[in-house]
Design a protein around this nucleic acid. Structure first.
Length: 407
DNA sequence: AATTAGCGCAACCGCTGGGAA
DNA sequence: CTTCCCAGCGGTTGCGCTAAT
């Protein structure tokens, strides 16, 4: 593992790329595509390793890159995404079309960090620096932090690191979650908090949420899985408006299955919400389309969070946390959710959530999201954040319990 | 004018996870 | 199951420019 073998080869150029090298690489990829990167330098006539070629292409030569300075709203978005995703630059970059992870990372380290500090915010936790100091001195919530959940690790998971940890304990106290992994060899990501179960999604759809602020991308976004996620709350009222909010998991498919949202909530106020999923690919993700002044009030993020009711509900990294995985006899997929083939136990719910999560991640490349916004982290203090998340989760549990009462 | 410090950016390095053999 | 190859990610380094001294 580790360093690619080609990097050991001699006579490979390093350092800045010359215009001639750029031209060769651009010409080759334009004509033939990159294919296997390790073969690119040879085929393109470059004395570089494939890794270097890939990096040059991804960060500089790609035609869909947006050059130039970052706009203020881009910076705002980066800050808010960082609060949720932490230092996952590549994931942040997928929400900023035309920007590379490297570019965003550099901007963060060179500029945004400084600005946040000037505003009295800790760039790692997004908390006020003074509050951070106070909380370290006298934490108001008792947490049993494991040795690996250091401040550094928490901060690298963004502001939600602490909250997800706390919520994890809350959920575990309700015996809804498996115990934490005894040993974690990896740097923990958004650990502990489980994906809300299917009813949560259905209820959100059916609950007739008022219009949340939305962002409409005015530019085409090539190869962008999540079309322009924006996180604005009411204080960005100018970005409100628009009447069509939609979730597209597979924008290329015509609706193959239409289901009524949440029979438990016929009064939902949703006028024409529809779920779509690819019947030809039963394990594919669900697609959702809603129209009118409603939206589901949640958004799915590949490995980040679920935004619910103006707050962020962190996904756990279930797929990577093998110690906490719950095995289920049969794999549950979106069709199970949509056809009401519900699991029989809460344990099954967890597994369902896991498979749903995995499906969603797999379908990310087909995911086109528009009109779902968050109001995270602008108005609430950390304690309030925790309360919101806890309330959401508890409400979700209460609501979702009803379909299982008859089991 | 020369030197130094600070900054932004491009590229490199080390590592991980997935998939194929 | 193990090994190897590969793509991709995030942290770090180093270069070049500019402003300050």
């Amino acid at each position: 593992m580790g360093r690619h073998s080609c990097c050991y080869k001699q006579k490979l150029r390093k350092g800045l790329w010359s215009p001639e090298e750029d031209e060769k690489l651009l010409d080759h990829i334009t004509k033939h595509g990159h294919g296997c990167w390790s073969t690119v330098p040879r085929l393109a006539g470059l004395q570089r390793c494939g890794k270097s070629c890939r990096l040059r292409w991804m960060n500089y030569l790609r035609p869909d890159l947006k050059r130039g300075a970052f706009a203020q709203d881009e910076e705002d978005l980066i800050i808010q995404l960082h609060a949720v995703l932490g230092n996952r630059w590549s994931q942040i970059a997928t929400r900023l079309p035309g920007r590379t992870d490297n570019e965003i990372k550099n901007l963060w380290n060179s500029c945004i960090k400084k600005k946040l500090r000037q505003k009295g915010l800790d760039p790692n936790t997004h908390k006020p620096l003074t509050e951070l100091d106070c909380s370290k001195a006298a934490p108001t919530i008792s947490t049993e932090r494991t040795s690996e959940s250091s401040d550094v690790d928490q901060s690298s998971d963004g502001a939600l690191g602490n909250l997800s940890h706390l919520l994890s304990e809350t959920a575990q106290s309700q015996e809804l979650l498996p115990p934490p992994a005894k040993h974690r060899t990896k740097t923990p990501r958004l650990a502990g908090v489980k994906v809300p179960p299917k009813e949560f999604f259905l209820d959100q759809l059916a609950s007739g949420q008022e219009s949340l602020p939305r962002y409409s991308s005015s530019v085409p976004v090539p190869n962008f899985p999540f079309q322009q996620l924006r996180c604005y709350n009411s204080e960005f009222g100018s970005r409100h408006g628009g009447s069509t909010n939609s979730l597209w998991f597979n924008q290329n498919e015509s609706p193959s299955t239409v289901l009524n949202p949440s029979p438990e909530n016929p009064h939902s106020g949703i006028h024409s919400a529809q779920f779509y999923w690819d019947a030809a690919n039963p394990s594919s993700s669900c697609s959702t389309r809603s129209s009118g002044n409603n939206n589901m009030g949640f958004e799915l993020q590949s490995t980040g969070s679920l935004v619910v009711d103006n707050s962020v509900f962190p996904w756990t990294d279930l797929a990577h946390d093998k110690d906490s995985q719950v095995h289920l006899e049969e794999e549950l997929k979106w069709p199970d959710l949509l056809h009401g083939t519900f699991p029989e136990t809460l344990t099954a719910i967890q597994s369902f959530s896991q498979s749903m999560y995995e499906d969603v991640v797999k379908a990310e490349s087909q995911f086109n999201m528009e009109g779902l916004c968050t109001a995270w982290s602008r108005n609430l203090q950390p304690q309030q954040h925790l309360q919101v998340i806890t309330d959401i989760y508890e409400n979700g549990l209460q609501r979702r319990s009803s379909p299982f009462e008859n089991i």
